[in-house]
Design a protein around this nucleic acid. Structure first.
Lengths: 195, 195
DNA sequence: CCTACCGATCGGTAGG
DNA sequence: CCTACCGATCGGTAGG
């Protein structure tokens, strides 16, 4: 069981780096000091590995949704922070979650899609609540959601926790940008001087 | 020369749909009613095909930067519109430009990276100009640029020109959201009633 | 542009 | 977890 976890971690890493199809099972085995065929004592197929990595990432992202509390502004701030935290802590899995899931074939593909949809709906629920309470000033809920998801989802492409930007700085700045886009003035909360 | 163009179009389509490594040359050939080996009368390698598709997409995106005129707000609106227009008109190539370029190996990879960097710098230049003129109220130029690029770059994942949203509607709404994020009030220009 | 082929590598299995 | 192997398929080439 522990060995399987190792395999999943390395698989997530390789899939995120080279892509699912460009990663061979022998390559994966080599990273684990195994022979190619030996992997199949622990797993049943390459595709199962991919789905499992997607599941692990989804669990983290969906966990973010569960931790949201308070008013819509607080929820959105926590959402931004949580999303970026998952990316910082689980970059390979997050990358697979956003990119490589497409290479699953129909039966498994549906599960991956459903997991992604659940996350997107969670984000949409936060924005809807803000709209209904008149806190967010947006005309089109679906479009606003896609905008926020776009801003968040692309971050795994460029954010590196070891880079110049700390997680705190990035979360703060990103939340401000997103809240402004949603029509919330920055200094309604704790203040902040800009302009 | 015309045949080569056909090959590039179909290759872009297949690479965007299944991914570079999951697309075989025989599959590509079949879509063109050719035998696998016959492709090599027109091209030299699979990787060259990928780079060429990336180049074609880059040409379109860089073309958007050249058409920008007027004040920073106008430039940003044109940029958003242009970016989304390329996606609407060239979805397969745009997808390859954003996704599949990573599978190029070092010598060609550098060219792809340079093309992407040029586009990102063009976007950054617009935001810098707006900052310097005091039109955009943002604290961190690089971060604001990454935010805008994130919002734009992810759109190819979900926007479909045949969907419920016209290009005009999407461009308008997206420009408003982005400008607000950058601290520009929506009704400084032609007006617009929300809230 | 086709036929026929190359060596290499693929995911996965049998049997231990 | 290893050795040895399976059939299938890969990108690419020779020769016409």
């Amino acid at each position: 069981m522990e060995r399987r976890e190792q395999i999943l971690t390395v698989a997530g890493y390789l899939f995120s780096q080279r892509g699912y199809h460009a990663t061979s099972m022998r390559e994966l085995a080599k990273h684990l000091n195994l022979q190619g065929g030996s992997l199949y004592a622990h797993i049943t197929s390459k595709e199962e590995l991919l789905l499992e990595v997607v599941r692990q990432a989804a669990e983290r992202f969906l966990g973010v949704l569960e931790g949201l509390k308070g008013d819509p502004v607080s929820k959105l701030k926590s959402l931004v922070r949580g999303h970026l935290e998952v990316i910082a802590q689980e970059l390979p899995r997050a990358t697979v979650f956003f990119h490589e899931w497409k290479h699953l074939s129909p039966p498994l593909l549906e599960e991956a899609k459903a997991l992604r949809r659940r996350y997107e709906e969670g984000v949409q629920a936060v924005i809807r609540e803000g709209m209904e309470q008149g806190v967010f000033r947006v005309e089109n809920l679906r479009l606003a959601t896609l905008f926020v998801l776009s801003a968040l989802n692309w971050t795994y492409q460029w954010y590196r926790p070891e880079g110049p930007l700390t997680l705190e700085e990035l979360s703060e700045a990103y939340a401000t940008l997103i809240l402004r886009a949603l029509g919330v003035e920055a200094n309604k909360e704790k203040g902040g001087e800009n302009g």
